[in-house]
Design a protein around this nucleic acid. Sequence first.
DNA 1: ATCACACCTGGGAGCGCTCCCGCCGTACCT
DNA 2: AGGTACGGCGGGAGCGCTCCCAGGTGTGAT
Lengths: 358, 358
Amino acid sequence: MTIRQPREGGRARSGGRPTLEEVAARAGVGRGTVSRVINGSPRVSETTRAAVEAAVAELGYVPNTAARALAANRTDAIALVVPEPEGRFFAEPYFSDIIHGVGVALADTEVQLLLTFASKDRERRRLAQYLAAQRVDGVLLVSVHANDPLPDLIDDLHIPAVVSGRRSATEPLASVDTDNFEGARAAIAHLVERGRTRIATITGILDVYGAQRRLDGYRAALSAAGIEEDEALVEPGDFSEEGGRRAMAELLRRRPDLDAVFAASDVMASGARQILREQGRRIPDDVSLVGFDDSAIARHMDPPLTSVRQPIEQMGREMTRLLLAEIAAIDAHRPQTSRLLSREQVVLPTQLVIRSSS
Amino acid sequence: MTIRQPREGGRARSGGRPTLEEVAARAGVGRGTVSRVINGSPRVSETTRAAVEAAVAELGYVPNTAARALAANRTDAIALVVPEPEGRFFAEPYFSDIIHGVGVALADTEVQLLLTFASKDRERRRLAQYLAAQRVDGVLLVSVHANDPLPDLIDDLHIPAVVSGRRSATEPLASVDTDNFEGARAAIAHLVERGRTRIATITGILDVYGAQRRLDGYRAALSAAGIEEDEALVEPGDFSEEGGRRAMAELLRRRPDLDAVFAASDVMASGARQILREQGRRIPDDVSLVGFDDSAIARHMDPPLTSVRQPIEQMGREMTRLLLAEIAAIDAHRPQTSRLLSREQVVLPTQLVIRSSS
DNA sequence: ATCACACCTGGGAGCGCTCCCGCCGTACCT
DNA sequence: AGGTACGGCGGGAGCGCTCCCAGGTGTGAT
């Protein structure tokens, strides 16, 4: 007969960290009780709780997340998935604000945020694997294009998810979006009020639903003002500065008499401004310029840019709130209960910030 | 006698994902064999391997990371800890490049990168908890100040860690750094060569070791050139644009006759340039300007900025390489083996990129 | 034909936790 | 006094995996 040696508690790295059982022994209680204290269950007497807490403090006990995840089937982590290359991620203040909002919403929870990039196809596949391996309880998806298969894939995996910016009018996932239509409409109405009549627009990438909605708002406002549409005044951009320059040059070529430009992003407005300057147009005397996002660029532009503010940080907060709610809902569900997830669609208002460019 | 119902496989969320056991049954082999195949062990016959792989594919099996982490005591994840507020993180191209390098080094591993911010004290504590909970196998620390307790804390936890930028000449942790001294020395030597003699410097935050080294290099180069030191030509900045402006103004006030400025970062150089312009100094005719980092700012400045390039992406790669090596080393160690971690110190060379500002 | 040895393989034990069943004791009712 | 709740608690079972031992099978040497 062979006596098996106990396995030496995993790898050397475990470094002899205390376990639940050790805390229980120290406090003179059972494992279950310690677990209840750790998880804040009310079904523990005050005295016992105090004893356990003392033992936890003395031993410097920290629950092992892997064990907890395995036993409870939850990870207390959510992922923010960015389907863009790192470069763009860092370039756009948008992401910084979103993350900040998420951070705020997570501040008084125990939930950890993971950042994941998934621009290339290979990374996509890895991400799918990652999610299937149940490493997170839910997913926040930002900057999703209309034809991106990722959201549906995530949905198929039955992983709670919230997207920022609907992909279409009938977004099947829970989403948080800003009122792009109304924001654009207000911007144009403002230009009309200023007496502008030949108002051009540089659109975003139109397979992004929000960009499409901004264009819709532009059109609606013109028609409401009784101004006839003119396709020569609409030029697609790609949300980049270079795209803004290109589109602006093209618009000026086609309609040298334009008297206002609505760019679907501040970055594009900045590009447009360069071209206007180069061609000797004064802003706002000759041409009014309005952007979208109200980013730092808008405030620092010369002249300061009128822009449509999106409450991006709030979007981050809302997304997180929705996601945590979805996760909680699933947790509460027993299999027999019918699955009526909210799939809430939140639309946040925009606000026109008027500066001297218009 | 009561028959206990089996526990229904955790929560509803588990969504009936296949387990190792199910794959084993399907392939007609034992658990151990499937595990070996999944982990690429060579001790499996070709036929068996094929059968298992088929079963894995059919069932769409993905190993559960929590279970694996618990059993093997490793998570296959590392954390990049940024002890700065999100804002600065996004503002500095530095981080973007580091992350890119890390991504490259991780590309053909199964290791996942987590991004963590820990600027405020509260976040620090949470981070410590997080790390103690063994959620990552190791930590990359960037942008560490000399007096930051975080690294030592992490070291006490016996978690493998690599810092970017030593905190002192005798950094106890493994580290990757650039040769700040030599970079600064070369920049000054270049200015001397250009015939400049009254060379000022705007330093970084001097409790950052790298900033101190740049100042040391500045001094060494001057003394090597036989130029007498003049403390009126040294003004501390804080790595910000505003700090650069402030320091430049102060330098011009004290020494209106200066003929060159070496700024310890491109951002500060950009601030300095504004003040030089405002005061009517021509660059480089009246004053030569040199920066540090060779960031995008340097290339886009008017005139383009001479700057010391740091191989930041390579730093990210090196850091990751060191960290993975440390983790592997610990993994291989049995407790009885003495702990001789390398604690390697890598110093990467810098390169002076000469443009028209000098 | 026998033995030694390699190579594969199955499955027990255990990682540290959560969940839940059922026991114990006390307080309250009849 | 006995019965009945109920809050508090202990500990068994199990989450899905890895590790490792022992056993089986096949090969080549004796």
